[in-house]
Amino acid sequence: MQKMLMEGNEAVAESALRAGCTHYFGYPITPQTELSEYLAREMPKRKDCFFMQAESEIAAINMVLGASSAGARAMTSSSGPGISLKQEGISYIAACSLPCVIVNMERGGPGLGNIAPSQADYFQAVKGGGHGDYRLIVLAPNSVQELADLTVDAFDLADKYRNPVMILGDGLLGQMMESVEFKKSSKNDVSKKTWATRGAKGRKPNIINSLYLNPVELEQVNLKLQEKYREIEKNEKRCEFYEMEDAEYAIVAFGIMSRIAKSVVNEARQKGIKAGLIRPITLWPFPSKKIAGAAEKTKAFIVTELNAGQMVEDVRLAVNGKKPVHFIGRLGGMLLTPQQLMEKLEEVAK
């Protein structure tokens, strides 16, 4: 397979098709519109695919709920404000134990904010932006190639655990072009979805529901969900270590910030500062043990994010007071420069 030059948003769209996604529902918003645009062009060419630009983000996520209930691999995508609108539906999908993929190419917030890249939706994605005790599997790619690869994984994980999966990118990752090779693909195995509502001929009807008025019953539903979440935590944590073998200072960053952090690690090494990079790829489940392990060897942590400090809370929980955890970030769609991160590292390493 030849390497192609492709935008991040388009790579997610192409990869979704290769992962057997047949149903897409969305509503345009910068900086992810190219994703919908790609599927609006490609899906009608395929017999088994269905594309719809819904009347709103809320309608789109509820259409995902419907398509997933019937056993389809379904996806929606948006950015910040649109993802906020989807939260009610996401909570319902989680409660119903339905698989689906949700893409958030984050933009500057809060409010309508702007269309510049941001990572300020970490809490919303990881801690549950909707109501109730639920979890999303949250994947944080840092390149166009990884956007493509993780999109396939997202569909597989969603089906495996009957759980919504969020791909958390940002405006920069979505709109930049890099070389990409579509190595991975997957298929929807409807025959395994015995819970799906596909017509009850010859069997008892399946019911997909999130309303349990009896608290005794709802507690049982919750306990089952929690059991599933423990299973996901056991199996699915992903994390990249870069130059960590002898690192004295660990920079922790996800998504696009991890790219900037990597360039700073390289520069720091040339200056004689033993820096390394820890990059959580799954933001939930969070790779806490890996970070706790690193706390045994390093002198300090520097968390860097394009927000006011969100993942840093999970890093502090993992480090559990063993080592100092510093933070540097930029807000409102501004990018942290390698120079600013380098200065912070030099200050900590002094």
């Binding site: 390497k3 030059l5 910068t30 900086p31 269309i115 510049a116 890249p117 405006g171 920069l172 709109q175 930049m176 072009m177 890099e178 070389s179």
Partner: peptide, 22 residues
């Protein structure tokens, strides 16, 4: 874009980031 495509066909790693304002 053409520079990035040319680099790609030369077997290099490439990235292209547009100015992302309105």
């Amino acid at each position: 874009k053409i520079l990035a495509l040319a680099g790609l066909s030369d077997g290099k790693q490439v990235s292209w980031v547009p100015s992302y304002g309105p």
